[in-house]
């Protein structure tokens, strides 16, 4: 619930301020991360669980993947799709889940 409210905040903020730019739906991006990292970040396999990871860590990790500073089999290819503000919002999204 807290997540939904926060996201609504996010969305409306975007809709108001940056409308000329294409604004992605953050919750929907996160839903797509679930496909590999597990629903709500609870992974059922070797891919790391994202649930409850510290926001700063996730943000920095994604920035590093994006800049090809951190190796990975697939994340460098995926992280390049997102802007810094999307990465920050995604990190906050996953940090909101309790471990």
């Amino acid at each position: 619930m807290a997540i939904k409210v926060a996201l609504l905040g996010w969305l409306s903020l975007f809709c108001g301020a940056l409308w000329a730019e294409e604004v992605a739906n953050i919750e929907l991006i996160a839903f797509n991360c679930f496909t590999c990292h597990g629903e709500d970040g609870r992974s059922q396999g070797a891919a790391p669980a994202l649930r409850g990871l510290p926001g700063k860590y996730v943000q920095q990790t994604l920035e590093d993947y994006r800049a090809s500073l951190r190796p990975g089999t697939i994340m460098p290819r995926i992280a390049k799709a997102y802007t810094s503000s999307e990465i920050k919002a995604l990190a906050e999204y996953f940090a909101q889940f309790k471990q």
Partner: peptide
Amino acid sequence: EAVYADSWYNNITQE
């Protein structure tokens, strides 16, 4: 990547 393929399969079917 073979290990992550298996992990992906578990997660997408759970979803």
